[in-house]
Amino acid sequence: MITADQSVVIPSDWRDYLALTKPRVMTLVVFTGLCGLLAAPGHIHPVIGFAVILCIAVGAGGAAALNQWYEAEIDAQMKRTAQRPIPAGRMDRRNARDFGIALSAGSVIVMGLAAGWLVAALLVISIVYYAVVYTIWLKPRTPQNIVVGGGAGAFPPLIGWIAVTQEVTLMPIVLFAIIFMWTPPHFWALALFVKTDYAKVGIPMMPVVAGEASTRRQILIYAILLAPFALAPWYLGGFGLIYGVSAALLSLAFIGFSLPVGLRRSEEGDAMRPERKLFGFSILYLFALFAALVADRLAANAGWIA
């Protein structure tokens, strides 16, 4: 007897494709990319600037789709991620992969045509870094995965800046370093108060592998090491007092929020208040720091300060 599969595959909704691009992560990507673009010395046509930000966002979306394509089995076993389109059965895995490749390739081609192939090459590096180096290679292998992953989030301001200047200089690399150093304390603060099931699926997150005490110590170390990087745009001479003072105050506050987290130990049934505060402040910190960078540049361009 011949039996035919009568089940029908309903094509995924556009909302599922949108969810695949991790739109909430994208807001931070768009913001830091835009700040890099606006803080860079020089001029870029608004249409090209728009295309650059669009390509950074779409490239990040493509990398996020590839990430979810690769991690579908892991996501299915974790409460936080089980409702994503692929593990929830709303999307075919291969469609997600092809969607990710299409977004990545499309964003790189448009970036090359709009802002030149140096910037497009940097976009390729950032996508491959996130989708391959981080997701496939290092995330399942080392508790330093968040440190590595921070590099992926650090690309947007660098790309935005170089789209304007068309050359790789020290300042965009400093912006890269700021986000790179910021990510570990930001994420580990979250990891301390959100009980995730990373251990169950074999992803070596720092609090699970090295223990809470070590994670707390490392949060404090990164918070202190972040300060010289945050101040670098000012003492390297690219930016003025608006940025310098903002960065100094924000860095002091960041260390201030990290101190109680780094020096205490949680007890049974702990409300984890210092950790929650640090996590909340870390987001504000990044937004404020990059906004100060742009404000400083705009003020200098307007001739308000020397």
Binding site: Q6, V8, I10, P11, S12, D13, W14, Y17
Partner: peptide, 20 residues
């Protein structure tokens, strides 16, 4: 394929085409 399934398939194809 039941008529309801056909209906859903058509609707989702249509919205996907619109988005594209």
């Amino acid at each position: 394929m039941t008529p309801e399934e056909q209906e859903r398939l058509k609707a989702s194809q249509k919205s996907r085409n619109k988005a594209l």
